[in-house]
C-alpha cells in the first residue's frame, strides 16, 4: 500500500513523456520516470520517496526496442533484465542481468531502471562501461546519443527532465571473451559483496566492479596492473586491490576488509582461469 497520492501518466511517445515530465516539474511537482517500478513502489511504500507523479515509459516504442543489426545491439531502456538475458544477444550483460534480484523480478526490472535507480549497485552498468556502449537520451534538444561512460559516473548524470531511451553496444563486444561473477554474503539472492565483469578487447582485459565501493566503477589503473603480464598473478592482485577509487564499502552485508579479501580471491580465480584458457 502506497499512502501518497500519485498521478499516473502513460505516454505513447517520447515527446509526450518529456513534455508531461517537464510540465510537472514546472508546476513544482515531483515526477519520476517509471519503468519496472520495483524500486519506486517499494521506496514509496516505505516513505523514503514521495513522488507526486509517475510517467510510465513502457508503452513508448523506442524504449521497448531490442534488436541487433550490423552496428551492434540496441536495447530500449524499458526492456526487462529477463528479456535481455533470454535474447542471448550480449552474453556478458545477460549474465549480469541474470544475477540481479531474482528471476521473477528480472521479468519486471528494466535496464533503464537498474541504471537510474538509487540502489547503489547498478550492476548492468558494468558491461556497458566495458563495451564502449553509447546511450540515447531524450530531452530539451530532442534525442542525443553519447558515450555511456560520459554520462555514467557511479550513477547516471542526466540533464533535467531527460529520459534514457536506448543503449547501443558495438558488435565486437557482443562476441568478445568475457567473465562475470557475483559474490554475496552467503545467500545467492542478495546484493553483491563484489560483483565483477570483465571483457577482453585485442587481448586486453577491461574490468569493472560493483559492491566493492559505494558506486560501480571501471578503473584504468586497475586494468593496467591486471594486464601487466610481467608481474606474477599474486602481485598483480595485491596491487590492484590497492587501487580502489575509495575505501571499500562496509555495511551489514559485509565489511570493507572482507570485501577486499573476496576481491582478491576473485581476481586470483579470474587471472588463473584466463591463464589456463578457460575464458
Amino acid at each position: 500500500m502506497i499512502p501518497c497520492d500519485v498521478v499516473y501518466y502513460r505516454p505513447g511517445t517520447l515527446m509526450e513523456a518529456y513534455e508531461a515530465y517537464r510540465l510537472l516539474q514546472i508546476e513544482g511537482k515531483k515526477p519520476l520516470y517509471y519503468a519496472g517500478g520495483s524500486e519506486i513502489i517499494t521506496m514509496s511504500r516505505a516513505g523514503s520517496i514521495r513522488p507526486s507523479a509517475i510517467v510510465d515509459i513502457k508503452r513508448i516504442p523506442e524504449c521497448m526496442l531490442l534488436s541487433a543489426n550490423d552496428e551492434g545491439l540496441h536495447i530500449g531502456s524499458a526492456c526487462t533484465l529477463n528479456q535481455i538475458k533470454e535474447s542471448r544477444l550480449f552474453p556478458l550483460l545477460g549474465s549480469s542481468c541474470g544475477r540481479i534480484a531474482d528471476h521473477t523480478n528480472q521479468c519486471r526490472i528494466t535496464l533503464g531502471g537498474n541504471l537510474c535507480g538509487t540502489i547503489i549497485y547498478r550492476e548492468t552498468s558494468l558491461p556497458l562501461l566495458l563495451s564502449d556502449a553509447r546511450v540515447s537520451l531524450f530531452g530539451s534538444q530532442g534525442m542525443r546519443t553519447v558515450p555511456f561512460q560520459s554520462v555514467f559516473h557511479g550513477r547516471m548524470r542526466l540533464k533535467p527532465s531527460e529520459v534514457v531511451v536506448q543503449i547501443h553496444v558495438p558488435g565486437w563486444a557482443l562476441k568478445a571473451p568475457f567473465f562475470h561473477v557475483k559474490h554475496t554474503t552467503n545467500e545467492k539472492i542478495d546484493y553483491p559483496l563484489v560483483s565483477a565483469a570483465a571483457l577482453w578487447k585485442d587481448g586486453n582485459m577491461r574490468i569493472a566492479f560493483s559492491g566493492l565501493c559505494s558506486y560501480p566503477f571501471r578503473s584504468s589503473k586497475i586494468e593496467a596492473v591486471l594486464n601487466d603480464w610481467s608481474m606474477p598473478v599474486s602481485a598483480r592482485v595485491d596491487k590492484a586491490a590497492e587501487l580502489l577509487p575509495e575505501e571499500p564499502y562496509s555495511d551489514v552485508e559485509g565489511s570493507g576488509e572482507y570485501r577486499l579479501f573476496v576481491l582478491k580471491n576473485m581476481l586470483h580465480a579470474l587471472l588463473e582461469d584466463y591463464t589456463n584458457g578457460k575464458i
Binding site: G37, S38, T42, N82, D102, N105, R108
Partner: peptide, 22 residues
C-alpha cells in the same frame, strides 16, 4: 517488498510479484 514471492501471479505468461505492480 518483492522479496518473498507469496503474491506472485502470472502476467502475459511470465511470473510477476503483484506487490510490485500498480
Amino acid at each position: 517488498n518483492g522479496d518473498c514471492g507469496a503474491c506472485t501471479v502470472i502476467i502475459d505468461g511470465w511470473p510477476a510479484k503483484s506487490c510490485l505492480v500498480l
